[in-house]
Each structure stands twice: as structure tokens, then as C-alpha cells.
Nucleic acid binder design. Structure first.
Lengths: 150, 150
DNA sequence: ATAGATGCGCAACTCCTAGTTGCATAGTGA
DNA sequence: TCACTATGCAACTAGGAGTTGCGCATCTAT
């Protein structure tokens, strides 16, 4: 989609006629018509006004959809970063929590000579915390590195 | 800072002369000079090319610093959200961990008739976990609500 | 049916301004 | 001092953005 079509679609989205838009921009109705039909380009000042009026970036107005798509893909990669990293961080913290619990019981058994055991297998409590922490830590690091801002 | 100054600064940042830039854009050297001195505006096509060449958005090129600042503030608010929420979530998880430890001890004392006590005051272990969880939960909720995308 | 209103596109014309050519100036290294 | 580079100023041209005027649909009410 090129500039003219975009302009038309955002104008229609507001339910404005070409004339209404023309008045807001202090130009003739026919100028708007020409912009939309690709016969003319508006001046820089008008383009900025359009961007403000319709609350879209100037890039969205001027660039083709293909060009924009590239940028969107880039941005979404950046945006994916915090969420994914957060997930890994939670996994890591889960591991820390499990470790604390395990250590608590370990110390308890040692100091009180009472052989109380945790629910779940021995394997889970021996390696679970470690696996969580290592997995979460590595994942978080990879995500952080991968989507680093160049 | 207006368009001309911005153009000049990004050009200088690349270490290009006006002539070098002019060649890349297939215009005369003097055109570049006029753009930078605010005597002219380049055409839309050239503006898009400039945006590509210098890897800045068209908005950054055309809008004043004040206008851009507004947008940056908006964006930074959005970006602050995940970090702050993460902090509150960590506090919440800390509370959960403490609670689990406390419950573990509680059960242990009950079932084994051994009066083992946790290090630290009674108050800490009675209300600490609760406070952490409530504080973290409320904080996380507020942040989530406050920076919700409209 | 018709007259008026609304919304939009085409054609011709005007005029502004972006871009060009040519010249001048300032700084820099040999 | 003499090239050489980088940039600005002045005059001119041309292309295109914007305007006026006209025509053509589509609706709606009388």
C-alpha cells in the first residue's frame, strides 16, 4: 500500500470527507484528492500534521507495507526479549526456592537428629534445584545475548 | 533541533562530506547544502532514502526534539513496566519461599514432637512471608494496571 | 421525477520552490 | 604560495504542488 491509499484509509477510518480533512490542513479539497490518487505529494509540514491528526508515525504513512514489515519483525524480536527472559528468570528463581527449602531440611536433620524426609523422590530434591537454576540461568543468558541491541 | 541540523549531525557522524552524500542520493552537492541550512526541504523519496542510509526513523529526521521527547517518554513508561513488575514478582516469590520454609518447620514440629526453632525472631517468620507476598502481589498488580496499554 | 446536497475526480493554469550551474570563501597540507 | 577540499551564496530554471472551475455520480426530500 502506498501513501495515497494509506491516507485514504486512515481518513475513512475517521469518517472524514476529503473536504473536512482539507479544512483541518488549510488546503483545498482537490489537493487532498490528488494526494490520495497519487498525483501529488503533500508538503513536509502537511505530512507532519497528518501524522499528528491520525496518530500514526510518519514512517507508517510514507513507507510501503513491505518496508514496514521488516521493521515490525525487528521490533517484535526486541519485544520478545523481556518476556522470554522473564520466563527463564522465573525458572531460575524456582530453582533457588527449591534449593533453599532443601537446605533448610538438610540443616534441620543435621541439627535435630530427626530424620524427616521431603515429599517426592530423592532425585528430585537433589538435582531439581540445580537443573532449574542452570536451565533458567543459561536460557536467560542466551536470550539476553541473542536479542542484544547492536 | 530542526531537520537541517539533524541531517548535518548524522552526516558528520558518518564522516561524509556533503558531496559524498549528494552522490549517494543522485543530487547536486548544493542541494545538500541547502537542506542543511534550512533553505530547502528534500523530496519525499530523498527523505526516505536518508532514513535508510542513516538508519534513523523518518520521524526522528522530521520531528523536533520536543515532539520526539514526548514519544520517548511514552515509550519508556511502557518499557519500565516489565522491569518493575519483575521486581515485585521476585518479592512475591520470596514470600512464597519463606512461607514454604515456615510451613515445613511447622509440620515438622507437629509430627515429630521436636521443638526446633528457626533463626530470627518469631515475628519475622509469622508475618514476613505474608508481608512479602501481599506487598509483591499488590505492587505487581498496580504496575500491571498502571502501564496497561490503552 | 427533479432539485438540492454531498463527495469525489479531471483538466487547465499559476506560481512557488527544490534543484541546478557558476562563483566565492575558508581552512589545510605540501 | 599553491593546490585541494569542504562549504556557502546568488541567479536561474523547471517541475510539480496547489488552486479554480467544471463535471459526474449517489442520496435524500419534496
Amino acid at each position: 500500500m502506498v501513501f495515497g491509499e494509506k491516507l485514504k484509509s486512515v481518513r475513512k477510518a475517521r469518517g472524514w470527507s476529503q473536504e473536512e480533512l482539507a479544512e483541518k490542513l488549510f488546503v483545498s479539497r482537490q489537493s487532498v484528492s490528488k494526494w490520495e490518487n497519487g498525483q501529488n505529494y503533500p508538503s513536509i509540514e502537511v505530512i507532519i500534521k497528518l501524522s499528528d491528526l491520525f496518530e500514526v508515525t510518519i514512517d507508517e504513512l510514507l513507507r510501503t507495507d513491505e518496508e514496514l514489515k521488516e521493521k515490525v519483525i525487528k521490533d517484535s524480536k526486541q519485544l520478545a526479549h523481556p518476556k522470554l527472559k522473564f520466563l527463564f528468570d522465573v525458572v531460575f528463581l524456582l530453582g533457588v526456592s527449591l534449593l533453599i527449602i532443601k537446605l533448610g531440611f538438610l540443616g534441620l536433620n543435621k541439627f535435630t537428629n530427626v530424620d524427616s524426609s521431603l515429599p517426592g523422590g530423592k532425585f528430585l530434591w537433589n538435582f531439581g534445584p540445580l537443573l532449574f537454576m542452570v536451565g533458567g540461568g543459561i536460557g536467560s543468558g542466551i536470550v539476553k545475548e541473542r536479542y542484544k541491541v547492536e
